[in-house]
Design a protein around this nucleic acid. Structure first.
Ligand code: MN
Ligand code: MN
Ligand code: ZN
Ligand code: ZN
Lengths: 139, 139
DNA sequence: TCCTACAATGGACTAAGTCCAAGTCAAGTG
DNA sequence: CACTTGACTTGGACTTAGTCCATTGTAGGA
């Protein structure tokens, strides 16, 4: 059922009720949840799960490369189970909605070597900002 | 002397010792300082300037479009007086050094309209990450 | 079934920033 | 120059998001 859970199991993770619930919440239909949103949903299934455990578990998933941390604003980090299909993000400046986007072209290739200052560049992150249709409609 | 200060004066800002010092510090040879770094440098010239005033002043400069906030990590925001030459940033994942970069091409044009989900996209922010020559040398 | 290393817990702690009521002062007016 | 006043400054309390840690619990192997 849960792809994410399967991948984690396959890596020899010790399986606990807490970890299972966090993986299931994260791999549900909502994406880009904050740690506290994950916690709130997890508590429904497992009432006494702690905030610390949610943070620990999310952190481990990130270290394993199974989940990505997204920081589009300076509020809470968001956790993205879509770690195996590279993408960028489009954010509504008004309501904070985040959509996955797949721009054409490779921004890495757009950085000429005389603009790299000797760095070994390994990653590029692109954030588009604008106003979503909902927010545009309601002024 | 200070370009930034001139621009602010030209906008009818009430000029105080605190604002002058913050503008001068920010427009000095260092770029991408945090609010606390600005405060530390400001205190040298004006010992009793408060942290609150530094935050207020930086925030106003940002509202006026004379300074840009840069958030390349989840630590403190950095303040960039280079607001009139659009650019992106290259960050060392090891030591945090930030360099201004000017990639070729327009990443905005790389986002096809069927990937815009009805958003009015107004801005794009690109962050390159890698290892700087200094960090590469020292392991 | 028992053991133990790994995991969970809750509460204290931190970093970065915001908010506020009270005091101060820049700059316009006469 | 002296006066006035709304804008600016201040220190400290508060907030948010997250980390740390000593203690307690438990998954999974022997
Ligand atoms: Mn995503
Ligand atoms: Mn810059
Ligand atoms: Zn919106
Ligand atoms: Zn470095």
């Amino acid at each position: 059922m849960s792809d994410l859970l399967e991948r984690l199991r396959g890596r020899g993770w010790r399986m606990t009720a807490q970890r299972r619930v966090v993986a299931e919440v994260l791999d549900g239909d909502h994406v880009h949840l904050t740690a506290d949103e994950v916690h709130a949903r997890a508590v429904v299934r497992l009432p006494e799960i702690s905030r610390a455990t949610v943070y620990n578990t999310l952190g481990e998933m990130v270290s394993l490369g199974e989940v990505i941390e997204v920081s589009t604003d300076r509020r809470a980090k968001r956790y993205d189970p879509n770690a195996h299909r590279p993408h960028h993000h489009l954010v509504c400046a008004s309501c904070g909605t985040i959509r996955d986007v797949h721009p054409a072209g490779d921004p890495m290739a757009d950085l000429p070597s005389d603009e790299r200052f000797g760095f070994t560049v390994s990653d590029v992150e692109v954030t588009y900002r604008g106003i979503c249709p909902g927010c545009a409609a309601t002024g």
